[in-house]
């Protein structure tokens, strides 16, 4: 942060006054820059809510809000009950369309949980290794390696899923169990999303673990604890809010992940319980709908924004939770 004392110069010299005037002008310009971020947020809310209102009420957002406020009855085209607890998701069906978002949410849920089973154990153990065991030399190679892993574009992970994970891991496993599998399946999607979120879990957890003061470790060592006891009995509990922040961020990323799951997990919205079947996540639906030439004003076009709004709200809640946890662990050991 800057210093608290403002360099206010009191002088009759005109140049100083001009300098200070320019200073204030610049401050205004810089404030304009930051206001772009607020504008972006407003744009996100406006577009998503407006189009989602078209989807649910078949009317403009402002009209619907005015009608609701004045107590007029609003005819709802697609009820929230149907959206959240209907029968199936098939927006384009000409005779009997279904508007239940459940299958898409279920697809996202499967991928996210599967990815968490990969990234949370591996990421946490990696963080413990980096903060408690690793020598400087090992860290020097391990950390850049993780950074590279985090920098690989998600489309490349998608390609990796269909060209390696599915044919070499998932298909043999399915054959062993005697079940059919497709080139797109839940397991491959979950594994690649898990791999790509390992660096998030590892680096943020390690941050939290490194901020645990050495006094706590030394106290445990003085009592005769081994590194194993210190890692799991002292460091992990002491950094728990930071570690949870890392988990939540990784899960939030997995929910919003688009390309890898689109390629790896497919385009079939369904409630499935097998890791070898094709599903569709919320994000994959968005890609699917926009590629399928959704005509402006059609129900397919508007459904895009209803699903987008739901996705945005879910990730927003996760991010707020993450920020709260992060604040807490920053305050714990100052």
């Amino acid at each position: 942060m800057s210093t608290d004392t403002d360099p206010e110069i009191t002088s009759a010299d005109g140049r100083v006054a001009a300098d200070q005037r320019r200073d204030r002008l610049v401050q205004g310009g810089l404030f304009l820059c930051i206001s772009f971020t607020l504008l972006t947020t407003l744009a996100i809310f406006w577009v998503l809510f407006n189009e989602a209102t078209h989807f649910f009420f078949d009317g403009r957002f402002s009209d619907v809000v005015v009608s609701l406020l004045t107590g007029e009855s609003v005819s709802q085209r697609i009820t929230f009950v149907e959206f959240f607890a209907g029968e199936r998701w098939d927006v384009t069906h000409s005779i009997n369309p279904g508007y239940w978002v459940g299958p898409l949410v279920w697809g996202t849920f499967l991928i996210t949980v599967g990815a968490a089973f990969v990234s949370i154990p591996i990421g946490t153990l990696t963080a413990l290794y980096l903060s408690e065991y690793a020598s400087q030399d090992v860290r020097k190679y391990l950390k850049p390696g993780l950074e590279i892993l985090a920098g690989i574009p998600t489309i490349v992970y998608g390609f990796f899923a269909i060209s390696f994970i599915t044919p070499w891991l998932i298909r043999p496993a399915a054959e062993l169990l005697g079940v059919q599998t497709r080139s797109a399946n839940v397991a491959a999607g979950a594994i690649v999303v898990g791999i790509m979120t390992i660096p998030i879990v590892a680096s943020i957890s390690e941050d939290a673990m490194s901020s645990v003061p050495d006094d706590l470790r030394n106290g445990a060592y003085a009592l005769g604890a081994t590194k194993f006891d210190v890692s799991l009995g002292v460091v992990l509990p002491a950094s728990v809010s930071g570690v949870f922040a890392a988990y939540i961020l990784a899960i939030s990323r997995a929910i919003g992940e688009t390309m890898a799951v689109t390629i790896a997990a497919g385009f079939t919205p369904q409630i499935a319980f097998s890791p070898f079947v094709e599903i569709q996540t919320m994000t994959a639906y968005m890609v699917d709908a926009v590629r399928g030439e959704a005509v402006v004003g059609s129900i397919r076009y508007q459904s895009l924004f209803a699903v987008g709004l739901l996705l945005f709200i879910i990730t927003l809640v996760m991010n707020l939770l993450n920020n709260k946890l992060k604040e807490r662990y920053r305050e714990e050991y100052r």
Partner: peptide
């Protein structure tokens, strides 16, 4: 508020930004 908003914007999925540009 700006600070908190910034942290949240960094966490918005990129597909949502694309959708907003598509709609706007």
């Amino acid at each position: 508020l700006i600070d908190a908003n910034l942290a949240n914007l960094a966490g918005v999925p990129s597909v949502v930004y694309g959708l907003v540009c598509f709609g706007l």
